[in-house]
């Protein structure tokens, strides 16, 4: 199947570029809309809760699908973040503890 590492099949390249175009549309689409139209204060209030809401929407199912190791590591991240306010420390502690908890549990 792979005749040459550098081979570029025109159809594959076409599909990849179409995927890229679709993805760019999704990335710029939302801000394009909110930049183009004047937003009411009411809508801006809705927009303001988006960052936290998206973060929670990503996290919720992720943690529900995890197990005790992930839940324990999640608590570690929150505690380290709360005590040190350093995202780097929180990340390292989280990744190390998830590896540790998975080995233990």
């Amino acid at each position: 199947m792979i005749s040459d590492a550098l081979s570029l099949d025109p159809l594959v390249v076409g599909v990849v570029l179409a995927m890229a175009a679709v993805t760019v549309l999704t990335k710029v689409g939302g801000i394009w809309i909110v930049r183009r139209f004047e937003l009411s204060e009411r809508l801006e209030a809705g927009l303001n809760v988006l960052p936290g809401a998206i973060v929670i929407a990503v996290l919720g199912p992720e943690l529900v699908n995890g197990g005790p190791a992930e839940w324990g590591a999640a608590v570690v991240v929150l505690v380290v973040m709360w005590r040190t306010e350093s995202i780097l420390l929180a990340l390292c502690a989280g990744v190390l503890s998830v590896v540790g908890f998975r080995a233990l549990l």
Binding site: L59, E62, V98
Partner: peptide
């Protein structure tokens, strides 16, 4: 290597900072 947990960890750290008390 726990790489799969990095995304969750980044978002958890962010959630800790985005929390604005009762209004959240």
């Amino acid at each position: 290597y726990g790489f799969d947990f990095i995304l969750a960890a980044v978002f958890l750290a962010l959630a800790a900072e985005l929390w604005e008390g009762k209004s959240s």
